[in-house]
Design a protein around this nucleic acid. Structure first.
Length: 449
RNA sequence: GCCGAUUUAGCUUAGCUGGUGGAGCGUGGGACUGUUAAUCCCAAGGUCGUGGGUUCGAGCCCCACAAUCGGCGCCA
């Protein structure tokens, strides 16, 4: 039963002239009553398989003819180099085994036409129709979806590789929580044995609790935010790569943020050149994201730049997406925005000791209009300061008692960041929408399938 | 929460000033071919999102509702 021959390897020339059995799914068929071409697909690629009536015999040839799109099959035969076949290799079929049939009255509902839908501006959109979203479980088999999932896998691997290579420990926090990290309005409420619980928005508060124990820690875990955002960069459930580090400054943390993003870009180039090429990504561009240092500018400079460009903005205002987009136009690699005004950020950000109007924080903005991919900074670490900041904001102390306690027993300077993994993949893949890079996207209007 | 748009066959769509709907893909049948999203012929498949209104007559005009999509705010 174990599969030993992979189509990707066949197309690399690893089985030329040998007899093999190929297991996979029918992607497409064409042919006549005498010769039949079956394009077979597996997770590693596609290959054209040829069957002739005169060699297969009538019953097996008719069986081959009955295999419609997405039928699962085992095809036996020999591999031959053939320029006429896409990919350069071909299987001469000698035996046909039907594994899982497809009922022709209910054929595979995703067709080529679904892949090539133009919006009003003539731009192609992918998998964004109601039909493809309703059939997401089947849409995943399409080349584009599979390609995205491969990039995603490599990105996850790269993040783990980066942090483990830097001696960070992987650490898990609960997903049921009692308090908010961000604003309370974006919490998903969950009934919890007669009490009110929420789905976590971030691993951070629990990571800070473990910071004095582990000192360098990270995770990749889902976070949940009940934002009714309707944009191409928002999900209600997204995968959050977060790190927390003791004895670290804002600059130290940014260095890791830059390090991990560049490492993801580098890994995709190494592991997924074929997929990036399929997506028509400019490999030199990705190489630049991997090799070039990311500039750091302060909030004040950003505001000044925007004002010089004639954008209406006042000091103290948060930088929304439209303004981020104008800023990113000046950069061809991601760049950091640092030192936001205290009034624009929540209590856990540490106030800059050099100027109490600012906090020691940073956002990393991706180019090409993809926007914020990292938010992080130094944490308010002394007990007095955290109590003062919580009270200032009018946030109740009670749900955060454990968070305050951490500071009562040997608090130290520390910080960390959260990275939107889906956003990073979306950006590096050049996706038209973030839902392209996650198998079952959760948005404000969809939880199914 | 705000703004805009869409809804016609399983899917993608065309539809003229209002006069009972065309195509491509897919599916079935046939022809033909070392085919490349094959090609050619034929067939099945539509209460035009739902409800109401205007009209002699509504896919098309008006109202309501629903679903979906796109953008903004907010964020990763």
């Amino acid at each position: 039963m174990v599969k030993t021959v992979w189509i990707g390897d066949v197309q690399k020339g690893m089985h030329d002239g040998t007899s093999v059995e190929l297991k996979g799914w029918v992607k497409r068929t064409r042919g006549s009553n005498k010769i039949r071409f079956v394009v077979l697909r597996d997770s590693t690629g596609t290959i054209q398989c040829v069957g002739k009536r005169e060699t297969l015999g009538d019953s097996m040839f008719d069986l081959l003819k009955s295999m419609i799109i997405e039928t699962s099959v085992v095809l036996h035969g020999s591999i031959r180099v053939d320029e006429r076949a896409d990919g350069g290799h071909e299987l001469d079929i000698t035996q046909v085994e039907l594994v899982g049939p497809v009922n022709s009255e209910r054929p595979f509902p995703i067709t080529e036409a679904d892949m090539l839908v133009e919006d009003e501006d003539g731009e192609l959109t992918y998998g964004g129709t109601e039909h493809t979203l309703n059939h997401r479980h089947l849409y995943l088999r399409t080349t584009r979806a599979t390609t995205m999932l491969k990039l995603r896998s490599s990105a996850f691997g790269a993040i783990h590789g980066y942090f483990r290579g830097q001696d960070f420990l992987e650490y898990q926090a609960p997903n049921f929580v009692a308090g908010a990290v961000e604003g309370g309005s974006t919490l998903f409420e969950v009934p919890y044995f007669g009490k009110q619980a929420y789905l976590t928005q971030s691993w951070q508060l629990y990571a800070e609790a473990a910071m004095p124990a582990l000192e360098r820690l990270y995770t990749i875990a889902p976070s949940f935010r009940a934002e009714k955002s309707r944009t191409r960069r928002h999900l209600t459930e997204f995968w959050h790569a977060e790190m927390e580090m003791a004895w670290a400054t804002n600059d130290d943390i940014m260095a890791h943020g830059e390090g991990v993003v560049r490492h993801v870009a580098k890994t995709l180039l190494e592991e997924r050149e074929e997929e990036l090429t399929y997506l028509e990504r400019d490999l030199e561009l990705i190489a630049r994201y991997a090799d070039t240092p990311y500039p750091r500018i302060r909030y004040d400079e950003a505001v000044e730049t925007l004002q010089n460009k004639g954008v209406q903005i006042e000091w103290g205002q948060d930088l929304d997406y439209s303004k981020e987009k104008i800023l990113t136009q000046d950069f061809d690699v991601p760049h950091f925005l640092t030192h936001y005004p205290k009034v624009a950020k929540p209590f856990y950000h540490r106030v800059d000791p050099d100027d109490e109007n600012y906090v020691l924080c940073h956002d990393l903005l991706a180019p090409e209009g993809y926007g914020e991919i990292i938010g992080g900074g130094e944490r308010t670490w002394s007990e007095e300061e955290i109590l003062q900041r919580i009270d200032e904001e009018g946030t109740p102390r009670e749900p955060y008692q454990f968070y305050i306690d951490v500071r009562s027993y040997g608090g130290v300077p520390h910080g960390g960041f959260g990275l939107g993994v889906d956003r990073v993949v979306s950006w590096l893949a050049g996706a038209t929408h973030i839902r392209e890079v996650i198998p079952f996207p959760r948005t404000s209007r969809r939880v199914t399938p």
